[in-house]
Design a binder for these strands. Sequence first.
DNA 1: ATGGGGGCCTGCCGGC
DNA 2: TGCCGGCAGGCCCCCA
Length: 283
Amino acid sequence: MPELPEVETVRRGLAPAMEGGVIARADVNRPDLRWPFPTGMALRLTGKTVLGLRRRSKYILADLSSNETLLIHLGMSGRMLVSGDPLGDFVRDHPAPQKHDHVVLHMENGARITFNDPRRFGAMDLLRTAVADEHPLLAKLGPEPLGNAFDESYLVARLEGRNTPIKSALLDQRIVAGLGNIYVCEALYRAGISPLRKAGKISEQRVRSLVPIIRDVLRDAIEAGGSSLRDFRQADGELGYFQHRFDVYDREGMPCRREGCEGHIVRTVQSGRSSFYCGQCQR
DNA sequence: ATGGGGGCCTGCCGGC
DNA sequence: TGCCGGCAGGCCCCCA
C-alpha cells in the first residue's frame, strides 16, 4: 500500500527515535506476516544499536551493530507508530496495545516503535548487511526513480518493444523500483499518456518526458509527507499514511484539472488494478 | 522471455 | 440495522 514517498516519510519519522539508539527489547507477537519471521528474530534484535535507517524502493533497512540488517516492508496496510520519544518530537505517551500490533521495538532511549498491519501483507527479515542487496526481495529491483541510474536513455531502452501497457510497465519493480498504483496514475496524467497505451509504442520524446515527471510526482509527495510528519509529531506519531492531493487517483467522474480540458476522470481495470485517467487529454 | 490472472488477509463502504 | 459483495496503495507464483 505505501509507495515510495510514504515509505520515505516513515523512514524519516523513525530516524530520530531509532538512529543511534539501542533496541532494549523486541516483542514479536506472532510467527509471521506474509512470510515467517527469521529464526530468533527477537533475540537477534535485542541489545543491538541501530546504526542507520535506509530505504530501497518500498523497503526500509535498519543496519544493526551486529552486522545484520532488519528489512521492513509495510505491504498494503502496514503502519508504524512512534511513541514516547525522549527528544520530545512526539508528545504522546505509549498507547494501549491495538489489534494487529505484530512487532513492538522498545528502544533504550524510551521510544517505542509499533508495527501494526491488519492485512499482514507486510514482511520483516534479517539479513547480513554486507550482502543485503542480494536478498531475494531486493536483488531484482530496478533503479531508484530518484537516483542517477534512472534516466531518459535507460527508460527508453527498457520500454522499447514492450507490448505491455505503460501502466503495467511502470508498476513493474524490475523496470523502476518504488512506484505503485497511485503514483503511476498521477505520473501518466501529468505526462498526458493513456495508461492503456502499449509501452513500446510511445514516442521516444514522450517516454523521455516521463522521467522528470516521475521524479517530480515523487518529490511532491515526499514533500507533502514531510509536512504531514510534523502534524503526526504533534498528534499521535502514526506514520505510513498522509493526505495528498491527487489529480486522478480516486477521482472517478470528477472533472479533469488540466487547464482548458473539458474531460472527466474515468476508471478502468488493468490486470486487476484500478487505473484512473482523463479520457480527453491522456492519449 | 513475456504478459495476465489468482491469491494472500482484514476492514470498510455502499447497496439492498 | 444487518448482511453481502466489491474493493483496497503490494508482491509472489503459476500458467499459457
